[in-house]
Structures are given as C-alpha cells and as structure tokens.
C-alpha cells in the first residue's frame, strides 16, 4: 500500500485543485481537456529533446574519443539531470511557439 501513497497524494491534491479552480476561480471545466493535451504535448516535446540530447552527446563523446584518445565515458549522457533539462527545453519551446503564434498571424495579415 505504501508504494501507492505518492499516487494517492497526487490524486487527492489534483481533485482539490480541480474543485478550487472551478469553484473559486471560475475556470471552465471544458478547459481541462485542452490543458491535458498541452501537457502531453509538452511531455512529447521533452522526450524529443531528451533523445536528441542523448544522441548528440553520444556522437560528441565518440568523436572526442576518436580525435583525442581521451577516456570519456558514454555513461555521462545517462545523467538524470538531462531528463529535467530536456523537460525545461520542451516547456520553453512550447511557450515560445504559443507566444509566437499570434504575432506571426498578425504579421501575415494583409493591411
């Protein structure tokens, strides 16, 4: 049972956030579904960044080894920090796209 405590906590606080959001802040329930889609998009983008970071890292290390005979471990790219940094990259890219979209539409509009 203890192993599911984290999951239970998240479900409880998510339900509380839903109630507070809907009742106190007047957030529309219909907005929840698009929000979930956005989260999935962010996670997907983060995975793309993660794979790109790992591949670039491996190629860079192999190139460094070949060119300098340096002993650099490929395990360096397995650092857990890369997961968080990739998530931040995905999040930033998503926000960048969101904030750029209206501007580009405005720019493309004929006078």
């Amino acid at each position: 049972m203890g192993e599911y405590l984290v999951l239970v906590l998240v479900v409880v606080t998510s339900c509380a956030a839903y109630l507070v959001g809907a009742a106190r802040f007047g957030l529309p329930r219909a907005g929840l579904r698009p929000a979930v889609w956005r989260v999935l998009e962010c996670v997907g983008l983060s995975l793309v960044f993660l794979v790109a970071n790992v591949l670039v890292g491996i190629v860079a290390i192999l190139a460094l080894r070949a060119l300098t005979k340096a002993s650099v471990s490929v395990y360096l790219v397995a650092d857990e920090a890369l997961l968080v940094l990739s998530f931040l990259q995905g999040l930033t890219f998503l926000y960048w796209r969101d904030h750029s979209a209206p501007a580009s539409k405005v720019l493309s509009c004929p006078d």
């Binding site: 984290v6 889609w37 999935l40 998009e41 962010c42 996670v43 997907g44 983008l45 995975l47």
Partner: peptide, 22 residues
C-alpha cells in the same frame, strides 16, 4: 505533427506510470 507529439507524450506518461507504479 502536434498529434504525433501528443501521442509520444502519452507514451512517455504511460511509461513513467508503468515504471513507477507497476
């Protein structure tokens, strides 16, 4: 493209939940 990224995100979330809680 956005749909593909979302699908990838769903796979990522399911993989995370499957890894942590199963």
């Amino acid at each position: 493209m956005a749909r593909l990224v979302r699908l990838l995100g769903l796979v990522g979330v399911l993989l995370f939940l499957g890894s942590a809680f199963t």
